[in-house]
Design a protein around this nucleic acid. Structure first.
Lengths: 110, 110
DNA sequence: TAATTTTGTAACCAAAAGGTGACATAAATT
DNA sequence: AATTTATGTCACCTTTTGGTTACAAAATTA
């Protein structure tokens, strides 16, 4: 256990993103999560397992029930990664725009 | 073609994230990209195809070469998604902290 | 105690993902 | 014209993913 799963891979599946959405609002036990989907309970259980393996979900055992809590600070890694490149890309676009604006000025030849 | 690929799924693979990293710095043709990896050229070609299908990479044909450019504005979707939940989660943590601080005050009974 | 509820897990399956080598094609070089 | 280079694509393979049903176990409820 404790497979140290890649968070990028964990959020790749749309069902798992929906589970995150659900659990961000309220903690739910496994059956309650499963009720929100058309797939079987074991399938949901597997998704939850993957989410726990990268720390996005934490399980709190309460008697026979297991409450799933979203712990979303790991998403910082994702937003930081994406934002870094997006910003970089935007800066390049701006630089290109400046360059083109400069070129358009027919101020001097050569 | 134009498969409108899910960007979350596209960035799930570590090789593709490395390709994005490479192409963010400079446009490269396919062979030049492939040289950076141990896998075969067709494998890299497939990864590039997936990245183009969600708009993260754009191909510019130049004679027989195909230059791959990173177009990273799509990453906004990712960072916005992740940041939204991360912020939400942080607010919840803060609220909990406030609540606990309140509880700790032994100001009055019941 | 017996029945019900909540869940884990095992065995299995189909489809998708990620990889390969071989071959085809078109542009650039010699 | 012949060769080399850059690339796409096909056929194929293995592993992973996402799903299923069936059964077991432990806590709750009747």
């Amino acid at each position: 256990m404790e497979m140290r799963r890649d968070v990028f891979q964990a959020i790749a599946d749309p069902t798992r993103r929906k589970i995150i959405h659900l659990l961000a609002q309220q903690s739910l036990n496994l059956n309650a999560v499963a009720e929100n989907f058309d797939i079987s309970r074991p399938a949901v259980s597997k998704h939850i397992r993957i989410l726990t393996e990268c720390g996005l979900v934490v399980i709190k055992q309460k008697g026979r029930e297991r409450y799933c809590e979203a712990h979303l600070q790991q998403l910082k890694e994702v937003s930081a990664w994406a934002e870094q490149y997006r910003i970089f890309w935007t800066r390049k676009l701006d630089a290109l725009e400046d360059f083109l604006a400069q070129e358009r000025k027919p101020s001097r030849k050569k």
